[in-house]
Design a protein around this nucleic acid. Structure first.
Lengths: 178, 178
DNA sequence: TACCTCAATGCAATTAATTGCATAGTTAGG
DNA sequence: CCTAACTATGCAATTAATTGCATTGAGGTA
């Protein structure tokens, strides 16, 4: 499991709440990490119990109170230990491809509709990621240097989505042509 | 969960054993679906209990006996029901990108090594998928028509791996250049 | 001879992740 | 005015997935 380490990574650059982390996942980082709020909050509790995070209550008058977490020294050490060990190859379970694979048994129109539907959300994601890229390009050289690694992960998102769209167009042309 | 439906999809074209299914995942289909043997065997049992699969014992003298599963009428109906319902967008949790994102805290050499290591296995996968593509292209038009949908999923694997490699080269050039 | 891989299946324990439900005040829209 | 979405957190139950261990008999390698 590396949700723990995804959380540590996010909190290493800047302390934040569970809600903040979930927002990160929903927005920019969704391309490479996802988790529901229930899982995040539970993991934050465990990370605190393990002594890797410190928690400070931030009382707000108008909105619900926030619990702001930050890395402890032990948390930072654990993060670096994890970074040094090799990562397992990524596991992919893609239900859409299963459907396409066995699509001979289904309504052809349904496959096309499904692909077009997914195509829309991928195109949307791409647009969103490219907007973030524009923001990055507008930064000063110094700021860019600081954000270099997150930017490189963003590139993965962009190249990945572009490849997905190219593939989808290939498939849709095939399905509609024949 | 769609492991159930991935299994149904595989067994719909051709009956097979748990071992067969796992081999499929390890070989060609690994690009879009993965599961360990323990999970597959357990799921096969459940699918039988639900009446979606029928099981026939195939006794072998030299090798261990095989349990060959095939879809029942109810199993086929369930598969088609599932195919008709919309698929949720695919969930991606990529630990390597988490590492890169927070890589400022790590040894830079480690990141490069890690990326190169992963690059090798991705290049390997691409070669393997392209070999399968060549086999497909060597088929007769009629056979190609029959394998059209699985082939389109293979294309996803190929385009996906190519995009991954292009990205990795971009990143490695960046990391080594600066 | 001793060990390793392949074929083939499975149990048991644990951990990871999802689903459903719950609370409570604020702000925006119809 | 009512409803919905946003901010913010959490518990409890269930399901999905991993990890570790185990069996049997063949064939290959050091």
């Amino acid at each position: 499991m590396s949700l723990r380490h995804a959380i540590l990574t996010l909190l290493a650059t800047e302390p934040g709440s569970g809600y903040d982390i979930v927002q990160h996942f929903k927005q920019s980082l969704g391309y490479f990490w996802n988790a529901k709020h229930q899982q995040v909050y539970q993991e934050l509790r465990r990370l605190s119990e393990d002594g890797w995070l410190a928690c400070q209550l931030d009382a707000q008058s108008d909105k619900p109170d926030r619990k702001v977490y930050s890395l402890t020294r032990a948390g930072l050490a654990e993060l670096q230990r994890w970074q040094a060990e090799p990562a397992a190859p990524n596991k992919i379970n893609d239900a859409l491809l299963v459907k396409l694979y066995g699509g001979a048994l289904a309504e052809p129109d349904n496959l096309v509709g499904e692909l077009e539907r997914h195509r829309l959300t991928h195109a949307d994601t791409l647009t969103r990621l490219q907007a973030i890229e524009q923001q990055y390009r507008a930064l000063s050289a110094a700021e860019q240097a600081q954000q270099r690694l997150p930017y490189l992960t963003l590139r993965r998102g962009i190249l990945g989505e572009q490849a997905w769209l190219a593939w989808a167009d290939e498939v849709l042309a095939e399905l509609k042509g024949a």
